[in-house]
Structure formats: structure tokens, C-alpha cells
Amino acid sequence: MPLSTTALIALLVIISLMLAAAVAWRAAHMRAPVDQVLTFGALILLPGFAMWASFTQHMASSETTRFCLSCHVMHNYGKSLYINDPSFIPAKHFQNHWVPQNKACFTCHTDYTMFGDYRAKLRGLRHVYVEYFGKVPSPNKIKLYTPYNNRECLHCHAGARNFEEAKGHHKKPGMMAAIQANRLSCLNSNCHEFIHDRTGIAQDPIWKGAAADAAANGLPKGVWK
């Protein structure tokens, strides 16, 4: 069975830990140049590598749907992924695997620009800070930093036949060009306006497979109970 990345990083951390412990144990007796090389490896190289590897692992974890929905304030957003109504765009994408289920939030809420991923992660760090050390706003007061850019939709849909040939996208002359130039919003132009229903979620019909699907994705119980 192949080792997972996490297991490999854990192995690296354990080896690094054992060497550092050996240095702590034998510190009084270290003299020879070979000891100096060993201490440099045990106290600088390996811990540095372990720190970098753990950081990349934590960054990868922070992109997961489970991570995003683990804060209580996000539970209704998670529930909205299970609304049994295809007019709700996130629910339709999530339930049909049009976005990777384990990275659903990140797939749509990162900017597809050169530094989009980093910007999204910096915002995420701010959200973590607010969750634990600040004042968490009520779900209906949470808004996007900037209006949703069509670029994020077009990252996947541009060039797709069902997007390019859809009658709704050619209702008026120049409509497709306006969509592509972000002059006509996909979401705010009464075309695909049903996004996350955060406040009326209790009344929305929920997909009957939601509990099993959420459990399979490791989502917190608050999302599906």
C-alpha cells in the first residue's frame, strides 16, 4: 500500500524528533566535527524541512471543504450545498461533482489570477482570526469582499459546449461578449441568482442523500443534522 503524503511527513517529523532528542541527550558529550555536522542536520536541516513540509500539508488541508465548514458560522453554507433544488448553483455543482467535493469552497472562492490562491489563503487566515479572537458576524451579514467575478465561473465553463451554445446566453446580441468581459454578471443579472441560502435554509428541501454524502466527505455534523 503506498504511503500517503501525510504519513511521509509524519515519518520525517518522527525521524527529526528522534535525532533532536538524541542531541538533547548527548549534548554534554559532543565535541568532534562529526558531531557538529550531526547537530546541524538534527537541529537546522531536518526541523526546517519538517516545518516546510508540515506547512504545505496544512495549506493543502486549508483548501478542503471540511476545513472551511468546521467553523459554526459556516454550517448553513454547508447545508446549502445539499438543497434539493437544481436552481441553487452551489448545490447543483456540489451534488453533481462539477466541483471536487473535497475542495468545493476553495474551487469557487479562489481568484483565478496569478496570486489568487495566496489572496484566498490570506483572507482565510483573517477569517480564522475573527472566528477565535474577534467578533463573528451573523450569517446574513457575511458578504463577499468584491462582487463575484465571472472569471471564476468561466475558468471551467468557458469553451464548454453547454455553456457556449446555451440559448439563455444568446438572448440578446453581444450577451456572450458581455458575460466574458464580466460586464454582465452570471449571478447578479437574474440568471443564476440562487446561491447559498443562509437564512431560509430551514425551509429549503434537503437532498435525501445528504447525511450519507456529508459523512462520506467528513463534514461536521452541524452541516447535515
Binding site: 532528542a21 542531541v23 538533547a24 549534548a27 538534527a42 537541529l43 526541523p47
Partner: peptide, 12 residues
């Protein structure tokens, strides 16, 4: 050196 190793152990 001992303190360094102990701190690194704790961090790891």
C-alpha cells in the same frame, strides 16, 4: 545546545 534540541523536540 541542549535547550535548542529540547525546544525543537517540543515544536516537532
Amino acid at each position: 545546545l541542549r535547550w535548542a534540541a529540547l525546544l525543537i523536540c517540543a515544536g516537532l
